[in-house]
Design a protein around this nucleic acid. Structure first.
Lengths: 241, 241
DNA sequence: TGACCGATTTCTGTATACAAACTACCTTCT
DNA sequence: AGAAGGTAGTTTGTATACAGAAATCGGTCA
């Protein structure tokens, strides 16, 4: 929690509106008039407009010619490209971390996260433990190059619609072979960190890129094999055409 | 321009404040109280706050613990990383354009820009013509992959402080060997487009990355050889330590 | 002299008022 | 019937009022 009171209305507007949109409460193209929505969310237009600006920046909403906002419509290509970009940026973070070397503190933290992920995937799958550890891995990876600029932009990519590292974790316990898929992911986590420690920049970059493509595989599975899962992936209800 | 009247105060706040900060009107760390600044810029707090939010997002300003904003302090490493990231993203745009193929319309447009750049660099250097054409090249490159997601994020990278393709063009007519440097840049422009047309994705990516490093070379020249030039590069006045 | 405390001022977050632009609907005229 | 125009109702952009938090400053007391 950033600041509990300082920003309360704005934070509430941001969270609530983002949830509404991601959960498919609106249809792509729907206009979101400020007055109506402010009343519905129980706050004034000022913090709501701030939240709208932010969500426009994230790509979830878009501005129409007269200044109002509407819910964005995504194509599968948009999501595919967002995932690709996350891979590219995480790859860059990994490469730079390898080239520059990493701080011992971060290395230690990363080792603990990886051990935790091992425990969550070996034997019986512990999904509840896996998800937050996976988030921490990706958060650490963003910061591993020791650059605030890199960290900021990597994290930003994870906020693009359906591109976050955990975006396809929601309904995956239903995917056959899911445990094997997470084991492969964890093997990649280890390989990425190994490459970074060995100062193998190119290898680290390639591995991180490939790792992001797991999300793309899941995207393709969800849409082609089991469209009923699509509702459980936040944001996928906005895919049109 | 976008909309002349619709957003007038916000646009004015954004442009004016960005100019003030980039031109070094403030010292890094300076607080920017809303009331005072709104009065100075001749508008109300509402559009000014919008502009501040945007500039915080761009990295030019940062928020302090109590919600106010102050002017950011950059290190050389920050600028170096921002340039690196621009190279990575332009490289990705180039690679994807190569892999996916490009629309004939864009190819034609790109050919014209490259011809114009040739004319501006052969014989007597036409600096006034070069700068806007160079901007158009980078704008086109961002859109060449045919993805709005890619285009948006590539363009965003160019707005990070001192990372834009033209950031170091300001004082460069004073740099010795400047004409030769622009000829090398133009040679790279041609090579990037050639790789894209030949569907050589890896080559296109590597070339675009290397092209961005010209900015880094210029950064190092300016800071080590001729610090007096630093004042003429927008944003470089914010580099502290 | 120095530290602590309180009052005053400043600053930010939020709500709201107001005006200009836009939309939509209804009427009227050809 | 269809087009044009006007009017009422939304909707957004901007300014401003107000409350609570933070900072500042001065004074008092040890």
């Amino acid at each position: 929690m950033d600041r509990q009171e300082r920003n309360a209305q704005f934070m509430r507007a941001l969270m609530d509106l983002r949830s509404l949109v991601l959960e498919g409460e609106f249809v792509p193209g729907d206009r979101l008039p400020e007055t109506t929505l402010a009343e519905r969310l129980g706050l004034s237009r000022t913090p709501l407009r701030q939240a709208m600006d932010r969500l426009v920046d994230e790509g979830l909403l878009e501005r129409n010619e007269t200044g109002g906002v509407r819910v964005s419509r995504f194509s599968m290509d948009d999501i595919r490209d967002a995932i690709e970009l996350r891979g590219v940026l995480e790859g860059t973070a990994a490469r730079l971390a390898a080239e520059r070397g990493i701080r011992p503190g971060l290395a230690e933290e990363m080792a603990q996260v990886l051990d935790g992920l091992d425990r969550a995937t070996e034997g019986e799958l512990d999904f509840k433990a896996y998800v937050p550890l996976n988030d921490r891995f990706h958060d650490l990876l963003a910061r591993l190059a020791g650059s605030s600029v890199i960290a900021r932009e990597v994290e930003r990519m994870g906020r693009l619609p359906a591109a976050s590292p955990g975006a396809f974790m929601q309904g995956q316990e239903l995917i056959p072979d899911f445990r094997a898929s997470l084991r492969r992911a964890q093997w990649q986590h280890r390989a990425i960190f190994d490459a970074i420690r060995n100062r193998e920049g190119a290898r680290a970059e390639a591995l991180a890129r490939e790792h992001a493509r797991l999300a793309r595989t899941n995207l393709e599975y969800v849409t082609s094999q089991d469209p009923s899962l699509a509702e459980r992936v936040p944001g996928l209800s906005l895919v049109g055409e």
